[in-house]
Protein backbone atom coordinates (compact mmCIF):
# COMPACT_ATOMS: atom_id res chain seq x y z
CA UNK A 1 0.00 0.00 0.00
CA UNK A 2 1.70 3.21 -1.10
CA UNK A 3 1.90 6.12 1.30
CA UNK A 4 0.83 9.52 0.10
CA UNK A 5 2.17 12.88 1.17
CA UNK A 6 -1.17 13.84 2.70
CA UNK A 7 -1.05 10.86 5.05
CA UNK A 8 2.47 11.80 6.09
CA UNK A 9 1.55 15.43 6.61
CA UNK A 10 -1.46 14.49 8.73
CA UNK A 11 0.52 12.10 10.89
CA UNK A 12 3.15 14.74 11.58
CA UNK A 13 0.79 17.66 12.17
CA UNK A 14 -1.38 15.59 14.48
CA UNK A 15 1.58 14.89 16.74
CA UNK A 16 3.69 18.04 16.95
CA UNK A 17 3.43 21.77 16.22
CA UNK A 18 4.77 22.39 12.73
CA UNK A 19 6.26 25.70 11.60
CA UNK A 20 7.32 24.46 8.21
CA UNK A 21 7.06 21.15 6.40
CA UNK A 22 8.34 20.00 3.04
CA UNK A 23 7.62 16.52 1.85
CA UNK A 24 9.33 15.40 -1.29
CA UNK A 25 8.20 12.24 -2.99
CA UNK A 26 11.35 10.88 -4.58
CA UNK A 27 9.77 7.67 -5.73
CA UNK A 28 8.39 8.91 -9.06
CA UNK A 29 4.91 8.32 -7.76
CA UNK A 30 4.84 4.83 -6.28
CA UNK A 31 5.11 6.19 -2.75
CA UNK A 32 7.90 4.33 -1.06
CA UNK A 33 10.67 6.90 -0.96
CA UNK A 34 10.28 10.23 0.81
CA UNK A 35 12.49 13.03 2.00
CA UNK A 36 11.11 15.53 4.48
CA UNK A 37 12.22 18.84 5.91
CA UNK A 38 10.48 19.49 9.19
CA UNK A 39 10.67 22.64 11.29
CA UNK A 40 9.09 22.48 14.72
CA UNK A 41 9.49 24.07 18.12
CA UNK A 42 9.13 20.53 19.49
CA UNK A 43 12.77 19.99 18.51
CA UNK A 44 13.99 22.71 20.85
CA UNK A 45 16.73 21.42 23.15
CA UNK A 46 16.86 17.99 21.51
CA UNK A 47 19.83 16.41 19.75
CA UNK A 48 19.53 15.46 16.10
CA UNK A 49 19.40 11.82 17.13
CA UNK A 50 16.54 12.50 19.54
CA UNK A 51 14.69 14.50 16.88
CA UNK A 52 15.05 11.76 14.31
CA UNK A 53 13.90 9.18 16.83
CA UNK A 54 10.86 11.32 17.53
CA UNK A 55 9.97 11.56 13.83
CA UNK A 56 10.70 7.85 13.31
CA UNK A 57 8.31 7.05 16.12
CA UNK A 58 5.47 9.24 14.96
CA UNK A 59 5.80 7.97 11.37
CA UNK A 60 6.50 4.41 12.45
CA UNK A 61 3.71 2.79 10.47
CA UNK A 62 4.46 4.79 7.34
CA UNK A 63 8.23 4.28 7.41
CA UNK A 64 7.77 0.52 7.77
CA UNK A 65 6.07 0.56 4.38
CA UNK A 66 8.66 2.65 2.59
CA UNK A 67 11.85 1.65 0.98
CA UNK A 68 13.67 4.84 1.87
CA UNK A 69 13.06 7.73 4.21
CA UNK A 70 15.26 10.75 4.72
CA UNK A 71 14.72 13.62 7.14
CA UNK A 72 16.07 17.01 8.07
CA UNK A 73 14.90 18.47 11.37
CA UNK A 74 15.23 22.07 12.52
CA UNK A 75 13.91 24.34 15.22
CA UNK A 76 12.28 27.55 13.91
CA UNK A 77 15.38 29.54 14.95
CA UNK A 78 17.74 27.15 13.18
CA UNK A 79 15.61 27.21 10.06
CA UNK A 80 15.53 31.03 9.98
CA UNK A 81 19.29 31.07 10.29
CA UNK A 82 19.57 28.57 7.46
CA UNK A 83 17.28 30.63 5.23
CA UNK A 84 19.23 33.79 6.01
CA UNK A 85 22.48 32.06 5.10
CA UNK A 86 21.04 30.68 1.89
CA UNK A 87 19.76 34.05 0.72
CA UNK A 88 22.86 36.07 1.66
Amino acid sequence: MPIDTIALEKAIKRAIPVTHLEIEDQSSGCGDNYAIVLVSEAFQGKTTLARHRMVNELLKDQIAQMHAFSQKTYTPAQYDELQAKASS
Partner: peptide, 12 residues
Protein backbone atom coordinates in the same frame (compact mmCIF):
# COMPACT_ATOMS: atom_id res chain seq x y z
CA UNK B 1 18.84 8.58 -4.33
CA UNK B 2 17.86 8.01 -7.93
CA UNK B 3 20.37 5.22 -8.32
CA UNK B 4 19.20 3.29 -5.29
CA UNK B 5 15.68 3.73 -6.24
CA UNK B 6 16.03 2.27 -9.69
CA UNK B 7 17.67 -0.86 -8.37
CA UNK B 8 14.83 -1.55 -5.98
CA UNK B 9 11.89 -0.64 -8.11
CA UNK B 10 12.10 -3.78 -10.18
CA UNK B 11 12.37 -5.86 -7.05
CA UNK B 12 9.33 -4.30 -5.41
Amino acid sequence: RTSIYSSFRVLN
